[in-house]
Design a protein around this nucleic acid. Structure first.
Lengths: 372, 372
DNA sequence: TTGTAAGCGTTATCAC
DNA sequence: GTGATAACGCTTACAA
């Protein structure tokens, strides 16, 4: 059907199509008008055929689709967006901390989300924000109608971004949740409190009474909840909470290393340590190495594990895994949050969805097997 | 001047502006037409004033800008894009490996690039691609005119993506470079060969003759060049290259751990190891810990270091740093690549730019100080 | 089942 | 220095 001299990638330099017993000449690039002229149909019909409207006859639709494929026609997103008011893209605003630190947890989350977007024909728009810039970016997205919705990352306990997004009417889903009013918007969170309660409980069952918590930044809601779970387990077992054994910062490897050293130099060093992420936990291992201590033998370690892809065993058969961990896949969370957001965009009147995922304990080599 | 009932974020519910001694009513959202009506000017003039055209009088420009600010007017990107053919956005196609592994090096690169984009008013479009999907995505970008340019990540030695991008006329800059024809397109690369030659040379000077290389995936051009540098240093010092001491894979922590264990179990274990990234190097530390070995004492370690932000010391004062490393900031590379790309988009006829950065050696605690 | 025509919100080409 | 007016490429009432 299509008999073209050069047909690379939607650009038709000089192209002839036999149609209605005549030849039509077109030049690059191809658009709806040209396509419809070549087919001897109106733009309306071609558009309808391509967008799966039910009224167009199967015969026409097939003819249109074949021509579109042959010419590698793709509708212009700008034009479609202008006409419909939808952009078919989702914004992600990633906070970067003071030291231009970008948390690697995000890349795994994004990998999950982007899979959903790609399948649904959405694009992902990324923006890095220094502390405090997020709200401006959301305002910018909204006033320029740049995206159809956004994902809120790293909610704090008090989270002005959520109020802002509600007021500017930009669909959003929160990964995590803020402290207040949490059923008034959609979120997906891990039950961080329970995860850390369970983990701490396990250590206590194994005989530990002096346990340190190397936590994330406690302005973050998830970190606050983790501390609450940790303290709840201690209190339930009549163990006094000792603030000297709790610390809080951005979850870097170096932080884990330094905090671990500091803990072990205390006059009554902990016999077990809980880490908020596998990155500081790895720093902890490095510190133990320097001190000649073996995890699982000289000291027990449990870490929260987001199942970051670049820390997984290549073949997935790391049995038993190295770290004893409380584990939940952040990539899976990314997928689910993306689904929830697209759903909400399609159906803006639906009620908010809240999902609370339970993390599960995975027994590795950094705790004794007693009490398991 | 603007006297509005409700003026949140570009949406003007019912707004009155005193203008030419009369009141005008407008409804949400604000656009160029309404803005120009309120000002009693034509759309042309308003557009020109806002876009900094020289012919508009300063008085008018000021008046327009103030009204635009007061009403929080932002031009619609879709409309602008439709009219100009430019999208003001840049595509990044990030490869994810088989196991949905997403390399954390990318997030730092993107953090650097996004800073440049934000400053220039560009958006960043992200897409994750499984092996082999990249080309389809580039074609899609081109035929839908979705982005003004792309960054090519992780070039292989033979890189069909580069030929594709040339043929579809989509501006691009490569982070790294391919093996052939490298002055026919723009790229920024680290001198990987020299970096690993230097590093290996340092170890040899410190008395090591049995050195292992735990390399990245050697289908990647950078890894191939690193091996070449490693082997060149050995050969220059009349040390035979022993393939049993070289391995190659995706640069994960687990890979570093397993490969290190494997090396140290050989009948003639190496006395020094070079790592392609700090992630496998950290896995190596974990392996040493299991074997009760101390880096810098029992075995020397040098790693390539992309200065990943989440592995840096929080206050930047990790002196001396833990790892002896050959170091170059991947975030800085992201910034520079973004600059190069924007420049090329602005001036499509300019010659390709090639930049080769030298990595520098940083002395840490994982090598002896001899020969330093 | 198909077609006509009016938007969508800009920028750009003229003319004045 | 400013203003009509025609693109840009699509979607979508409304007609037929």
């Amino acid at each position: 059907m299509a008999n073209c001299l050069h047909l690379a990638f939607g650009y038709v330099d000089i192209c002839q199509i036999a149609l209605n017993n005549m030849f039509v000449m077109v030049t690059a690039p191809i658009n709806l008008k040209k396509l419809s002229e070549m087919l001897g149909l109106s733009q309306t019909t071609v558009s309808r055929a391509l967008n799966g409207f039910p009224e167009v006859s199967e015969k026409t639709r097939k003819r249109v689709q074949e021509a579109a494929n042959a010419l590698n026609y793709r509708p212009s997103p700008s034009a479609a967006s202008l006409a419909t008011g939808k952009t078919r893209s989702i914004g992600h605003v990633i906070p970067v901390s003071e030291h231009r630190m970008i948390n690697p947890h995000f890349s795994d989350f994004l990998a999950g989300a982007s899979e959903i977007y790609a399948a649904a024909g959405y694009d992902m728009l990324l923006r890095m924000a220094n502390a405090g810039e997020e709200e401006d970016i959301y305002r910018d997205f909204a006033s320029r109608r740049r995206v159809d919705g956004v994902v809120v990352h790293g909610p704090k306990t008090i989270e002005p971004r959520i109020d802002l997004l509600k007021s500017i009417d930009l669909p959003f889903v929160v990964h995590g949740r803020s402290g207040a009013d949490a059923n008034s918007y959609s979120w997906l969170d891990v039950n961080n409190r329970e995860a850390f309660r369970k983990g701490t409980e396990l250590l206590i069952k194994q005989g530990h009474a002096n346990i340190a918590l190397i936590n994330g930044l406690e302005s973050m809601n998830f970190a606050k909840r983790r501390r609450a779970g940790f303290e709840a387990a201690l209190e339930a077992n009549k163990i006094a909470v000792d603030q000297r054994h709790i610390c809080s910062a951005d979850m870097t490897e170096t932080y884990g290393h330094d905090a671990t050293l500091a803990q072990l130099k205390l006059s009554s060093p902990p016999t077990a340590i809980m880490y908020a992420s596998i990155l500081p936990a790895m720093g902890g291992i490095r510190a133990l190495n320097e001190l000649g201590l073996q995890p699982g033998k000289d000291i027990a370690i449990i870490t929260y594990d987001d199942e970051l892809s670049f820390l997984q065993s290549p073949d997935g058969t790391d049995t038993p895994p190295f770290f004893t961990a409380i584990s939940s896949s952040i990539q899976a969370a990314g997928k689910r949050v993306a689904e929830m957001l697209l759903q909400q965009i399609d159906n803006p009147m639906q009620n908010p969805i809240n999902e609370l995922w339970e993390a599960e304990i995975v027994h590795g080599k950094t705790t004794s097997s007693a009490g398991k």
